[in-house]
Design a protein around this nucleic acid. Structure first.
Lengths: 149, 149
DNA sequence: TGAATCCCTAGTGTTATACTTGGTATTTCA
DNA sequence: TGAAATACCAAGTATAACACTAGGGATTCA
């Protein structure tokens, strides 16, 4: 039941972009350095985020990546689903492709997988990147430490 | 974010034992047939459940497995944790061995992983094997079909 | 023109998963 | 008493996913 690094790194990267929202493009190298992620690997993840429309890119020197929308309008669920696909603890409760695993019997484990799936989705759909930025600023204020030196 | 077959098959097996609670030992073959699981593979999973004290075994002909406690007292969480270990979407929020991934910064993704972890645990700790049995009987009643022919 | 950046494709070592294979030990029952 | 039914144990294996690395091409700015 682990999230892979795709989802975890991807969310860190999106958080980083949210911190700099409105300041022009952020180069990948900065994100990778700040969050301590391999640049080349992150490149592959952010390519997925770009193709799914969550971020835009600007090529060339002084280029980089930026959020395609306000952090208020992007949820953790948007990011994780883009990178990991639909969240479900078992294939039989994948949102689009629900399978009838058991024709004769009503399957009681399926009920449980649905409840787990829904509880996870409730969490990730209720948190926006802006929430993360707000929390970060709150916790780090008054420490004489600026995140983005 | 998938549960492995360990947790999924293991829960199915425990449900099967709960259905037959109080009726003496159920042989592995019956469980494997009912739930359509490889017998030899299930053997390995149930060995873990036995070592963790959730089931007992009776050897020899007419032997099999039985729950070590009433289905009312065994939760889905007990079963899944025995087979998969503590549930957490990222290692940094594993219950026993929480790691400080980021010394300088307050890590906002960690907050999210904790919320996901807690929501999953809430679900699996709130459902007992008896709940599953009750739901199964409710849904299958009046269908002229008995599960345990 | 050259440095900084994004973009793309392919390869690779490691690990976990989901089994299979092939036995041994114990108990019941005919 | 012997055969069948069961639990118990240890090892091997094919596949796939993960988490990268490597190497280069395209674009833009100064």
């Amino acid at each position: 039941m682990k999230l892979s690094t795709k989802g975890r790194y991807g969310l860190k990267a999106m958080f980083e972009l949210a911190l700099h929202y409105g300041e022009g493009p952020t180069p990948l190298k900065n994100i990778a350095d700040s969050q301590d992620i391999s640049e080349h690997y992150l490149e592959q993840l952010i390519a997925v985020l770009r193709k799914s429309g969550l971020v835009n890119s600007v090529r060339g020197a002084q280029g980089g990546y930026l959020l395609n929308d306000s952090p208020k309008n992007i949820t953790v669920g948007n990011v994780i689903r883009a990178l990991e696909g639909d969240i479900a603890p078992a294939d039989c409760v994948l949102e689009n492709e629900e399978v009838n695993c058991d024709k004769l019997n009503y399957c009681v484990t399926k009920t449980i997988w649905m409840k787990i799936r829904d509880s996870i989705n409730d969490v990730i759909d209720s948190i926006t990147l802006q929430d993360m930025v707000d929390e970060h600023k709150e916790k780090n204020e008054g420490q004489g430490y600026m995140y983005y030196i």
